[in-house]
Amino acid sequence: MKWSRFLLVILVVMLLDAGQWMQILAVGPQQIRPDLLLIALVFFAGNCAAGEAMYASFLIGLAADLSSEGSVIGPCLLSFGVFGTLLSQIRRVVMIHRFVFQALTIFVTALLVLPSMYLLIYAKTRQGLSHPATAILGGAVYTAAVGPILWKLLSILGGWLGFHQPPPYAMRRYV
C-alpha cells in the first residue's frame, strides 16, 4: 500500500468526520452521527494484507483520537487498533463484498469498538455519556447505514492507494 496516499485519504476522512458540516447529518437529541473513521477502519482492515491492516488500524485509531471532541488520546487508538487487527484476521474467512455484509460487518465492529472506546474514555477522563446505550446502538446503526456509500468511494480509490485486494478465501485455491 502507498502509505503517503493512505495518510492523505485518512486526513480527508478525519477532517470530514471532525468538521462542523457533519452536524447536518446529526440526528436525535444526542446528535448521533455516522463514524466515518470507523467505516474506513473496517474497509482497510477488510481489504489490506494482515500486516498493513494492523498498521492502518492503529493509524486510523490515532486519527480518531486526534479528531475527537475532547482530544482524549489513547481510547480510539487501542480499540480501533485491536479490533481492526482482529477483523483483518477474520477477513480471511468472511467475504465482505456485498453491501449487506459490509453494513453488517460495520455494525458488529461498531458494537465492539464503541463500547470499549467509551469505557477507555471514561477510564481516562472519568467522563461518561448520559445515555451510552442509545449512543452506541444509534451510532452503530447509523454508521452501518452510511458505511456502504463510503466503502464504495474508498473502493474506487483502491487502485490509487495501491493496496492489493486478495481474492476471497473460497476462491484462493483457484488462483
Binding site: 483520537d65 475532547g70 482530544s71 482524549v72 488520546i73 489513547g74 487501542l78 485491536v82
Partner: peptide, 25 residues
C-alpha cells in the same frame, strides 16, 4: 509489532489527559 503498537497505545492511554490533549488541540 502488534504488541509494540498495543504497548504504545496503552502508554498513551495511561498518560495523563492534560498531557496528551495537547496533541488533539
Amino acid at each position: 509489532m502488534f504488541f509494540v503498537l498495543l504497548t504504545a497505545g496503552i502508554l498513551l492511554q495511561i498518560t495523563a489527559h492534560d498531557t496528551t490533549k495537547i496533541l488533539g488541540y
